[in-house]
Amino acid sequence: MNIRKLKDIIAGRLILASAIFSGLLVFIIAAVLYSRSISILSAKSLSELFLGITWLPSQGEFGFYQFILGTIYVTALAMVFAIPLGTLSAIYLAEYAHESMRSKILPLIDMLAGIPPVVYGMFGVLIIVPLVADIARVSGKLGIPGLTAGSYSTGFSLLAGSVVLAIMIFPIIISISYEVLRSVPSEVREASLSLGATRWQTIKHAVIRTALPGLAAAVILGFSRAFGETIAVLMVAGIALNNIPSSVFDAVYPLPALIALNYGEMMSIPLYDSALLLAALILMAIILIFTLTARLILIRMGGAHG
């Protein structure tokens, strides 16, 4: 066997090994998290953990309900802001904007996507939080459910968290949606326009329909980013323990913040370490479930349209 063949075999094996390793990584992390959270899972029942509302590690109470709810709330509200904003901006840029306009705006959006989360967090503290506090002062008195605020709101709240998150993920949604819309073949537009459709009818009925799986993928990527986002949310969301938010002006305590703020501290408390690792496992599981469901939807949609 000559050197050349040997190199070929080694290279082949090496590539295979690295591919397997990256694939395995997700299982390794899941396995480690699971093995470390077994102790809490065996000590407490699942309903106690997921539906328990008190979190008092020193007294052995580990209720994740408020954290899970906080994560879902803040992410969902962020998506409510970011999806229309991102999708509509992408439609404008891809379908209406003139080339010169496009070439100026797109690099800016790409830059937005590259700003570190901590900077968004600071921006949130400086601008969004005071703004939310002002809004709370006005709308809190109107008595609309979900928009109530006590006599005083600091502004560090679910709303502030989701606005910051929305600002963070909308560049991702725009740039992916833009690429998706641009990749819609011009024949689709021509087909619709040549039948006498207006531009908006063409976009609404033909272009978006063709691009739907890709647009969904853009939203899902934004969602995954939002769901696991830690530092920016942590800086503006208020972080109040043992508090189930009933209004957008209430403070929330999402799962990633729980892990980031507490892991490594007070590890002498029994089961504390295990509980936080379970929190990480839950976070990972939820993101995996969402991604897989989304994939399934995408595959279904792809199949329906050939």
Binding site: P185, E190, A191, S192, L193, S194, L195, G196, H205, R209
Partner: peptide, 20 residues
């Protein structure tokens, strides 16, 4: 122009059925 286009059917080079 939408009115003009309605009066002219277009048969393209490559069939372009809409995704429906």
């Amino acid at each position: 122009i939408t009115d003009v286009r309605r009066r002219m059917g277009l048969l393209p080079q490559k069939p372009n059925p809409l995704p429906m």
